[in-house]
Amino acid sequence: MLSYLIRRTFWMIVTLFFIVLIAFVINFVVPGNPARTIAGPKASPEVIKAIEEKYDLNKPVPVQFEHYFVNLLHGDLGISYRTNESVNSELRTAFPKTMYLGFSVFFLNVLIGVPTGIYAAIKRSKFMDHVILISSLVGTSAPTFWIGYILLFVVGYKLSLLPIGGYGGISHVILPAFTVSLASAAGYVRVVRTSMLEVLGTDYVRTAEAKGLSQSTVILKHAFRSSVIPLITYAGMDLGTLMGGLIVTEGIFGWPGIGQMAVTAINYQDMPTIMGVVLVAAVAVVIANFVVDIIYALVDPRISY
């Protein structure tokens, strides 16, 4: 286990290094001079020069990368071109809000995806199963902004049940979380359904039934536990997509997380902020995947590291 942890951590660091490198390079490949973007087209060469100096843009790219990287090792993500504030402090405010939304989405995914998937598996090939499968297809393929807007229109505006956008407690988080969740819960439904169907056909489920266990015990204790493993895998793989969904949804609902930060930063070519968001998102995904692997070992006794 320990050697696994060490190996895993090593690869995590390597992964992150390459993410930094790639993000950095991509930022430099995009056309246009950031100093010019900051200064505006009419700015004099002196203004542009001063801005280049201020943001360390006058050095060759490898030197800039080195500076960035050294600062990064000290935990310093630099200064935003747009706001002149430290990216760290902006992320500190925004990231917990994204986590809040992200965990709400995850919670909803499980809350919607798992029972629905199980239900569909039990009702295999029956009418409700088809209904669920089709809705999950719709859920996956409908664009997030469309879902978000429909929810806002119906639930927020027409029914006045929940606030129309904005940040806040449970009542504020429900609609955006639901928006992201509708797409990703659909995936959960299908994964749970498929793996449940597979597990329900296994010999050990038949053994459990032969013991006289009730249907709910069979499903929850015997079948679901094993079918949870593909679900965990899926949840891990889905994290990247989830991040994407969060970014779009934050923009729709005015949720002040890193997604919203990213959208504004991209509009402005605010490189340090873009880098910061990319890094934080990447670290979050990498760590979450690490957690997924640990959970594997906890759920499936056959796996040991």
């Binding site: 904005g166 005015g254 919203q260």
Partner: peptide, 18 residues
């Protein structure tokens, strides 16, 4: 000024008199 959401949502909030 509330911040962070686009036109369409602002328009809904306006119609909702919020």
């Amino acid at each position: 000024w509330t911040l962070g959401y686009g036109n369409s949502v602002a328009y809904l909030k306006f119609k909702d008199k919020k």
